[in-house]
């Protein structure tokens, strides 16, 4: 298992997986867009603006999931000092930043026709902005700090502190009164999203997950090549 996780072994699979995703991606994207924009019904109150949810919700989930992974790997990296985890974190961060920003922008575009305002400083929206700050700081920490040891330390520190913000984002809509509605999907509870809207949501989630995986694999490949380049010099 450990051997399998060595960069030299993973590298062989990266190319194959990238090719596989490339081959199926456009088909799933078109199915997803068809369901999200045409085939799914409008909402009983929100009308057609509900379609924004099909990009907003998956983006928010991926933004949160990416930071959770970064925090988890940073903790593991702190304890076990595996350089590979640091490379993985560097490859995840841009995806997380992109999707968190997209969640905020699309949410704003949904808020204007639905709430009647682009923006409200309620607990959920504010904590999402803080998440964007954490992503930016995390990315800057390894872009600006040239000494790798120090960069690892600073970025891990940011990731671990930032994980507390994740908990705040998750429960903000339950602990405090917010303009943002509470979660529609809860573990162990029946969902409050009708099945005809659940299907496009899940397909769009799959599309964006595949896209995220593609970017991750390409970034990770880049990181491995960078590392190998240094090794060639040393020979």
């Amino acid at each position: 298992m450990i051997k399998f996780l060595l960069p030299s072994n993973i590298y062989f699979f990266l190319g194959k997986i990238i090719k596989f995703i490339n081959s199926i991606f456009f088909l799933i994207l078109i199915i997803g867009l068809a369901f999200a924009l045409v085939l799914s019904p409008p909402d009983y109150i929100q009308g057609d603006s509900v379609r924004i949810m099909y990009v907003h919700v998956p983006s928010a989930w991926i933004g949160l999931a990416s930071f959770s992974l970064i925090s988890l790997f940073s903790i593991l990296n702190f304890v076990f000092k595996t350089k590979n985890l640091y490379l993985i974190n560097k490859s995840i961060a841009p995806i997380g930043l992109l999707f968190t920003s997209l969640a905020v922008v699309t949410g704003s575009l949904w808020g204007q026709p639905t709430w009647g305002t682009w923006w409200a400083w309620d607990a959920r929206l504010t904590s999402m902005i803080i998440l964007i700050f954490f992503y930016v700081l995390f990315i800057l920490s390894y872009k600006l700090i040239k000494k790798e040891d120090l960069a690892v330390k600073v970025s891990s520190f940011l990731a671990i502190i930032g994980s507390i913000n994740l908990i705040i984002i998750k429960y903000s809509v339950e602990w405090w009164s917010t303009l943002h509605q509470p979660a529609s999907l809860k573990l162990g509870n029946s969902s409050s999203i009708h099945s005809s809207m659940m299907l496009p949501l899940m397909i769009m989630l799959l599309v964006l997950l595949l896209y995220g995986a593609l970017i991750f694999l390409m970034k990770y490949k880049t990181e491995i090549i960078k590392m190998k380049k240094k090794n060639v010099k040393r020979l």
Binding site: A36, L37, G47, D48, S49, I52, T106, L109, P113
Partner: peptide
Amino acid sequence: SMNGYGSFVWLSFGIV
């Protein structure tokens, strides 16, 4: 036009 929501819907899908 999506019953008046078109600009918001298309803009968000476009941006993404």
